[in-house]
């Protein structure tokens, strides 16, 4: 068991003894075993590990898309496993911003409406939604592409729309699952540069990847194998905790 990282302030999220089991046919699969983890505000963390290591399961639990089979998960001081589906949806809506490998934009909606969508579930009035979404798109450099449909945008632009959508509600954590997996290397670098900038701006970022090169952008790397955390290293760098 790895040592718990010590954060100066109360952690943004804290996992204690998180376990996840699946039934697959006749056998039980232990996707996660006794994972302890704390992430502080404004950390830039990468979950790294080969496929089957449990990193995606961990991200799903952190992102409140999935519930653990055992253990406790506190997000912003709230005990997540006590919440029902509707409350989990609310947490996803307010606390989490997802960025997916394959962008997962709504195909029928233009860039602006894609970014406005999370605010719909918050009950933000239309005019305010439009303003916030426009701002978010301007921040990712797509202020001129508001009315473009996803299929009229390049891969890098699509991922930037997805980032704008993740950011528009000012979430506590930005969760990115292989965000550069479908992009060519120069576009990937652009996107990674954008994450670095977002981190500098004060966002908490969790990156999930199998690519050590991508993980190297993060300031803290948590390595998983067979559902366990086997390493938790921080890049010694001035200015980071």
């Amino acid at each position: 068991m790895s040592a718990l990282p010590i954060a100066d302030t109360a952690p943004l999220l804290e996992l204690r003894g998180i376990t996840k089991r699946y039934r697959m046919g006749d056998s039980n699969v232990h996707a996660l075993q006794e994972v302890d983890l704390a992430i502080a505000r404004n950390e830039y963390v990468a979950f790294i590990g080969p496929s089957g290591s449990g990193k995606t399961t961990l991200m799903n639990i952190v992102g409140c898309l999935d519930r653990p089979s055992g253990g406790r998960y506190f997000l912003n001081g709230k005990n997540v496993e006590e919440l029902d589906d509707t409350q989990l949806a609310r947490i996803r809506n307010r606390e989490i911003g997802f960025v997916f490998q394959n962008f997962n934009l709504l195909g029928r909606a233009d860039a602006l409406h894609n970014v406005m969508q999370p605010l719909v579930y918050r009950g933000t009035p239309l005019r305010e939604r439009r303003r916030l979404a426009t701002e978010a798109l301007q921040r990712v450099g797509l202020g001129q592409r508001l009315d473009h449909l996803p299929n009229q945008l390049s891969g890098g632009q699509r991922q930037r729309v997805a980032i704008a959508r993740a950011l528009v509600g000012s979430p506590s954590i930005l969760l990115a699952d292989e965000p550069t997996g479908n992009l060519d290397s120069s576009t990937a670098q652009e996107i990674m540069a954008m994450f670095a900038a977002l981190h500098s701006a004060g966002n908490t970022i969790v990156l999930v990847t199998h690519d050590a090169e991508v993980a190297a952008h993060a300031h803290r790397t948590i390595t998983l194998r067979d559902g366990r955390v086997i390493a938790d290293s921080r890049r010694a760098e001035p200015g980071t905790t």
Binding site: D85, A89, R92, N104, L106, P118
Partner: peptide, 16 residues
């Protein structure tokens, strides 16, 4: 299905 999954990840509840 996928679109519904995306909407849920963005915070859509069952009711929505």
């Amino acid at each position: 299905t996928r679109e519904i999954g995306v909407l849920k990840s963005l915070g859509a509840t069952r009711g929505d």
